[in-house]
Design a protein around this nucleic acid. Structure first.
Lengths: 335, 335
DNA sequence: TTGTACGCGTTATCAA
DNA sequence: TTGATAACGCGTACAA
């Protein structure tokens, strides 16, 4: 209703629209007297800046997109909070979308961002995203930061955690406790994240003169029940295994169940390390020793990098890898 | 770069921009032949619709805001998922902001939405939001739906749950199991939601001839650790307490931790009921009995209502109160 | 400091 | 009936 425009403010202040615009954005050289007159006119008129008009003129915007596959996952909501905070610092608005692992929704969101001339985006792509999606994204040449899920494409900025180092730490912890027969449980065959974690695991074993046994590297789905299922099969076949690094905490919780069922006492007869440090890790009995990744920090760093890209930073693509941390609870015994 | 405009498409198709615009939006009377020619031109040119220009012309947008105080809280991230889904159905983009309970950030976000001519918003206002904020919001006459936190102002649409009924159900459940010494843990002193929940709790106790002991009504922050902290203090001081209704699941999980630490067996020595039914409630051991408020559904309903308001629905303000449900798991024992 | 062309889609008005 | 013309929304930035 009765929207006040720049022109009206200009008239009221007895200056041109150019002058008002400059005052608004603190540009150019405006005399103190005029500036004050304009500021007063702005105030009196109840002017509301029309960002849309400015965006049209500038062929840009102050809006960035965030695409996740599941905002409900605590890890991602933490990350979102970190990113949101960072965006606000720079007066950028954040569009949120949940792909729910659907390429179609993902594509729709991207199109929507393009139509709205978003100035950048952060995304954790759906799992089976076709390479064509990334190619088309590159062609648009809008700043895009990939997060969390490891991406082989070197043309994108990436912010994530060090999966390799994480499992190295987990494995080193178990080795230090004297374990030699250690299994790796979880993740899906096609997961890049898993490949990295397996890498950390096996490299640390080799460093200690232990040859990884491929039969002790088992995949499973991201659920407790499947974790329990594969663990039971594994430990029945190889009772000599005394410890395990799990791909995810969720899986570790399932493994814990299986061990209990087999009358093995986690923390005494068996040592277990997870990955993610989800909330439940602290709740179960015994508490799950795990690798923590600072989700909020990933969001913050992604925001920082995105902002610099929007500002025109055109250095080669960066990979920001945040260090994970070992969180010691009781699932490996006390020490 | 080389952005294709409507005019260019028009030229290619040998028609006017008006015609292309009409084809794009399926308006007006265009012959089949022309339409096809235009569609082909659109396709060939790789045209990207400029929503900003359209918005400027229409003095509107397809963008709505969501203001929360803590997206990290699983309850709110579930709600966000529900709302996000609903918005996508209507081709609306969702701006997300986290007030972190700061009025200043909240105000900033609102101003930002106004500048960007958002067409609507959903908000869960910061706790100490001054009435002036709401008044100014009304004056802008942009559709706004309040969610979750009870609001006395009858001029706004509201979507939330029946807190009173929820704790009544929780309390009745504990009473039926034979408990008499029941505590209420969590929430902050100034919270309206808490007031309602406490109301349901105490009214149900009184209905059964039990006078609520004010020392057994303790506040705490919305975190596991604080829940554990206050629970430990409470149960040390009053070991006769055998059950508790918690303000939130998050707090209940903390209480569970504390009980375990004190060697009390949740589900046998102690009965615990939460509120929210967050994902973790089903995952912990023992599963947490809780009051489900269908966070996702609140988001969906809010989205639905908001959309109807954007479409011009000007019925009087609505209050949509979703009924809570008791979800029985193991934290109160089996029966 | 100012005048004004410009960014680009929309729609009312008018012509064929 | 079908489609073209042109004014319009409003802030920006360059030439004057």
């Amino acid at each position: 209703m009765t929207t006040v425009t720049l022109a009206q403010v200009a008239e009221r202040a007895g200056v041109s629209t150019a002058t008002v615009s400059m005052v608004l954005r603190n540009r150019g050289r405006i005399s103190q007297a005029t500036r004050e007159r304009v500021l007063k006119a702005l105030d009196d008129s109840g002017y509301v800046y029309n960002q849309t008009a400015a965006n049209l003129r500038n062929r840009s915007s102050n809006q960035v997109g965030l695409l996740l596959h599941d905002i409900t996952n605590p890890f991602y909501s933490e990350m979102t909070a970190g990113l949101s905070h960072e965006m606000e610092r720079h007066d950028l608005l954040l569009f949120l979308a949940n792909s729910e692992e659907s390429e179609e929704r993902q594509q729709k969101f991207l199109d929507s961002l393009m139509r709205n001339s978003a100035c950048g985006m952060v995304l954790c792509a759906a799992r089976k995203t076709p390479q064509a999606f990334f190619e088309s994204l590159k062609r648009r040449k809008i700043p895009a930061i990939m997060v969390v899920r490891p991406l082989s494409d070197p043309d994108f900025d990436f912010v994530g955690t060090d999966n390799f180092l994480g499992t190295q730490m987990a494995t080193a912890h178990l080795l230090k406790l004297g374990h030699h027969n250690i299994a790796f449980i979880g993740g899906s065959q096609s997961s890049g994240t898993r490949a990295q974690r397996i890498g950390g695991f096996t490299s640390k074993l080799l460093e200690h003169g232990i040859s990884p046994d491929s039969r002790w590297l088992v995949t499973c789905q991201a659920s407790q029940s499947d974790g329990a299922r594969v663990a039971e099969a594994l430990f029945s076949a190889f009772p000599q295994i005394t410890a395990a690094v799990c791909y995810q905490d969720v899986v570790a919780l399932g493994v814990m169940q299986a061990l209990r069922k087999m009358d093995r006492d986690v923390g005494r007869d068996f040592s277990l390390v997870g990955f993610d440090d989800i909330t439940e890790a602290a709740l179960v009995q015994p508490g799950l020793t795990t690798i923590s990744v600072a989700a909020k920090e990933i969001g913050r760093k992604a925001g920082e990098l995105l902002y610099s890209r929007i500002q025109g930073n055109d250095e080669p693509p960066k990979r920001i890898i945040l260090p994970p941390a070992l969180v010691i609870r009781e699932s490996c015994g006390f020490r």
